[in-house]
Amino acid sequence: MNAFPIAASLVAAMSLGAVPASAQALREVRHPRVDFTFIWKDETARREGFGLIQAGTNRTRPELLTRLVACAPANGTRITVLEPGTVTSTIAVAEGHNAGCRGIIMSNEIGPLTERGPLPAP
């Protein structure tokens, strides 16, 4: 068996931006207490950011959070879940001025998609 066709298929799929089947459906950002949600750059940034928020540092030195956050879309912004998880999920923002932003979000901040029609053309 020749491994070349398999390797070529994998390279082609990766270069086309293939995502898992679970990532095909759009969802929405839904934070339960505020009008937006922080999309953290990675898991380490999320942990550090939560520590700063719990210590109240975000109120006195909000600039410390800036380097940890990839973006902060408003509730209702459509997202694509790239890697679903029980506690956190990796997402990509699908619309608005944060479109293309990728990062970590708390899984309980992901809500069902409301009916608003198709995404606007880029």
Rank of each mutant, 00 (worst) to 15 (best):
N2L: 03
F4P: 00
A7C: 00
A8E: 10
S9W: 01
V11G: 00
A12M: 08
M14N: 13
S15I: 10
L16D: 13
G17I: 10
A18V: 12
P20R: 11
S22V: 12
S22C: 10
A25L: 10
R27Q: 13
V29I: 15
V29D: 05
R30T: 05
H31D: 14
R33M: 13
W40N: 07
K41M: 02
K41I: 12
D42Q: 09
D42K: 07
E43N: 07
R46Y: 08
E48G: 04
G49L: 10
G49I: 08
F50K: 13
G56I: 07
N58L: 02
R59C: 00
T60H: 07
T60I: 12
P62L: 06
E63D: 14
A70V: 01
A72V: 00
P73A: 06
G76I: 03
G76E: 01
T77L: 02
R78D: 02
E83A: 13
G85N: 07
G85M: 04
G85L: 06
V87Y: 10
S89G: 06
S89A: 15
S89V: 09
I91P: 05
A92F: 00
A92Y: 00
A92V: 13
A94Y: 08
A94L: 10
E95F: 04
H97D: 15
H97L: 03
A99R: 15
G100Q: 06
R102V: 08
R102Q: 14
G103P: 03
G103E: 06
I104M: 10
I105D: 01
M106T: 09
S107C: 05
S107T: 15
P112N: 13
T114G: 10
E115Q: 14
R116E: 11
P118M: 01
P122R: 15
